[in-house]
C-alpha cells in the first residue's frame, strides 16, 4: 500500500444537492463511487489527487427504472445490479454481457456504471454496449441538468464532456425493438478478470430487407470508446448483397486507431477488429434472414 491515506481528505455529502454545491465550490475534488477503478492507482501511489467527494451514500444516484420506452440507470448502479436484472436481461443483452465480463463477482458488486464512464478508460467493457444502444447521459451541476448523447461524452483520452462542477447522474437508453440484432464480444487477455484487447458491440434492425438502424462501437482500439461511423454508413440502408466487405474493411481501418501497449499490439487489434466486425455482419444478416 503506497497510497498516502493520511494526506487524503474525503467529503461525504448527504444529498445530491449538497454534493453538487460542494463540487461547485471545490471543482478539483475527485468524485469517488465504487472505488474499483480509483483505488488501484491510489494504493499504488500513482494517483495525483488527495481530495475525494464520496458519492457512495447518495440514494438519488441509485436505482434502475425500466419503462416501455426507456431504461434509466442511476450512475451508482452496480454491474451486479445490471447483470442480474431480469428486465435488462430480456431487453438489453449487450449491457448484461458487458457487465458480466467486467471483472468478476466482487468487482461487479462494487463497480458502478457511472464510474466506468467517468473513469473513461478506452478499454472499459460497458461503453461499447451503451454506444451501440445509442445511450444518453445526464450531467448535473448546481446550474441544472443536461442530457448529452453518450456518443459525444468522450472527447479524447481520459477527456470527457463533463464541465467543471458537473456530475454524471443518470444513463438513459431507448428500449430496443423486439427482434432486433444484438452483438457483444470482448476479446480480452483471458476469459475472466480480463482487460479488453478489443471489444465490439453492435445493435441493428431491418425494414423491408434493408438495414434501418445500425450502430457498432469498439473498445480498446482508439483513445476513446468509439462508434465505427464510417463502416456503419456502408451498412445502413443496404441489404446483405449490397454491402461491400472490402469497402467496409477499408472504412473500419479509418474508424479505429489502435496502439501497441503491454497488453497487445496495434496490428493484432486491427486484425481482430476486422474479423469481429465481419463476423458480426455475417450474424446480423443471418439474423435478418
Amino acid at each position: 500500500m503506497k497510497g498516502d491515506a493520511p494526506a487524503c481528505a474525503v467529503h461525504t455529502p448527504a444529498t445530491l444537492g449538497e454534493a453538487l454545491a460542494f463540487l461547485a465550490a471545490h471543482p478539483d475534488w475527485r468524485p469517488l463511487a465504487g472505488g474499483t477503478d480509483l483505488m488501484v492507482p491510489f494504493a499504488a501511489g500513482r494517483l495525483p489527487d488527495f481530495n475525494f467527494l464520496n458519492l457512495d451514500p447518495l440514494h438519488e444516484l441509485r436505482g434502475i427504472e425500466l419503462t416501455n420506452e426507456h431504461l434509466t440507470l442511476g450512475a451508482l448502479t452496480t454491474y451486479s445490479e445490471i447483470r442480474w436484472h431480469e428486465g435488462i436481461r430480456a431487453a438489453f443483452p449487450n449491457l448484461v454481457q458487458s457487465a458480466w465480463v467486467t471483472g468478476a463477482a466482487a468487482i461487479q458488486n462494487r463497480g458502478t456504471i457511472g464510474g466506468n464512464l467517468v473513469n473513461a478508460s478506452p478499454a472499459a467493457d460497458t461503453p461499447p454496449s451503451l454506444l451501440a444502444y445509442g445511450a444518453e447521459v445526464e450531467l448535473r451541476s448546481t446550474a441544472g441538468s443536461r442530457w448529452v448523447d453518450y456518443d459525444a461524452f468522450h472527447l479524447g483520452y481520459k477527456q470527457t464532456a463533463l464541465a467543471s462542477g458537473e456530475l454524471l447522474t443518470r444513463i438513459r437508453v431507448k428500449r430496443p425493438v423486439p427482434g432486433a440484432f444484438h452483438f457483444y464480444r470482448k476479446v480480452g487477455t483471458r476469459k475472466a478478470q480480463a482487460i479488453a484487447k478489443v471489444c465490439l458491440a453492435g445493435y441493428g434492425r431491418a425494414e423491408n430487407g434493408r438495414v434501418a438502424e445500425f450502430r457498432a462501437a469498439f473498445g480498446a482500439v482508439a483513445p476513446v470508446p468509439k462508434r465505427a461511423l464510417a463502416a456503419e454508413a456502408l451498412v445502413l440502408g443496404r441489404s446483405a448483397a449490397e454491402v461491400d466487405p472490402d469497402a467496409v474493411r477499408a472504412a473500419l481501418a479509418e474508424d479505429i486507431t489502435p496502439i501497441d501497449d503491454i497488453r497487445s499490439s496495434a496490428k493484432y487489434r486491427r486484425f481482430v477488429s476486422e474479423r469481429l466486425f465481419a463476423s458480426m455482419l455475417k450474424d446480423f444478416f443471418a439474423h435478418l434472414g
Binding site: L32, G35, T36, V40, A105, A106, R110
Partner: peptide, 8 residues
C-alpha cells in the same frame, strides 16, 4: 462479496 483492498 467485495475485494477489501478496493474499498476505502
Amino acid at each position: 462479496l467485495v475485494n477489501s483492498c478496493l474499498v476505502p
